[in-house]
């Protein structure tokens, strides 16, 4: 295993003990939870864009599906959080799996724009339905139970770890090689026996499952969701910036990019609130100019 990947496991180990060590935990818990969530989203997108070559720019649609499913199950059907979360992830993943065969006939920009349209349209649909709470959204109870101060932090940590392990597996498995073949040349992949429709659909499904789980944890974490926050195009942008900054198609890059972006964003946000957007924009421009393939990018 590459040295950087081992370092990531040590990093996760350290993160697991931080709630005990860091002063001002509520603050750091929130910042690190955001970074871990963004890591999961970037790693999920990496399975699809990095290894399969399909940029789901509107992948946050599945964040919304996961979040809303979890919230509705908890609120309307009184199902406990963890089963609700799992079902939320599965609904997101299965939705992707079902729409993949027609949707993934489109490639590159066309695929990216279509998924974005899906995300925006779903946001509108959710805003106009009764059982989703419309534009008023859904309120969830505040979590009470073990690890009260760091419950969501550990959930995001676990989710990021799972996402990272899946990336490791995709990077060096037979399954992953089929995805890489699709990324490189779909016609050639078919010609050597890879059922491209099946494999790219599975990739979209896995990616959306992870994205949906992130949405579910997020929903319970902030206890209030509405269409604007759950189908937020800005979150799509952040996911892509993190992924591109760290290095698309690498296992560690998405994590590095997400933490870097979230930390810089936090520092800028607390210090220079009014020019926050300008500085993030500058960071994107610099990233493109200096490390067009991402910090760890090789291709």
């Amino acid at each position: 295993m590459a040295r950087l990947e081992k370092a990531v496991f040590i990093f996760f180990g350290v993160l697991a003990f931080l709630p005990l060590l860091l002063p001002e935990w509520p603050y750091w818990g929130r910042v690190l939870s955001s970074a871990l969530m963004l890591s999961s989203l970037a790693l999920a997108q990496n399975v699809l864009l990095g290894y399969t070559g399909y940029p789901a720019f509107g992948g946050i649609a599945f964040f919304g599906i996961g979040g809303y499913t979890t919230a509705i199950l908890m609120k309307s059907l009184s199902i406990p959080f963890l089963p609700s979360l799992l079902i939320g992830g599965l609904v997101a993943g299965l939705t992707a799996l079902i729409i993949a065969p027609p949707l993934m006939r489109l490639r590159s920009h066309y695929f990216a724009i279509t998924t974005l349209a899906l995300q925006l349209a779903l946001g509108e649909v959710v805003a106009n339905l009764e059982f989703t709470g419309g534009t008023d959204g859904i309120n969830l109870p505040i979590y009470r139970g073990p690890f009260e101060g760091s419950f969501f932090y550990f959930l995001f940590l676990l989710l990021a770890l799972i996402s990272f392990l899946i990336n490791l597996w995709v990077d060096r498995s037979v399954f992953g090689y089929a995805l890489k073949a699709i990324r490189e040349d779909e016609v050639a992949a078919e010609s050597v026996g890879v059922n491209t429709v099946l494999f790219k659909s599975l990739s979209f499904g896995i990616s959306s499952f992870l994205t949906g789980l992130a949405g579910g944890v997020y929903a319970y974490w902030i206890t209030y969701i509405d269409p604007t926050s759950m189908f937020d195009p800005l979150l799509s942008v952040k996911t892509f910036v993190a992924l591109l900054l760290g290095g698309v198609g690498t296992t560690v890059g998405p994590l590095l990019g997400a933490f870097l972006l979230e930390m810089v964003s936090e520092i800028v946000w607390s210090g220079l609130t009014e020019v926050h957007g300008i500085i993030l924009g500058l960071l994107i421009v610099l990233g493109i100019l200096l490390v067009p393939r991402g910090i760890l990018g090789v291709r």
Binding site: E184, D185, V187, A189, S191
Partner: peptide, 8 residues
């Protein structure tokens, strides 16, 4: 025109 997986 050869269709290889160029980056692999």
């Amino acid at each position: 025109i050869t269709r290889l997986f160029s980056n692999l």
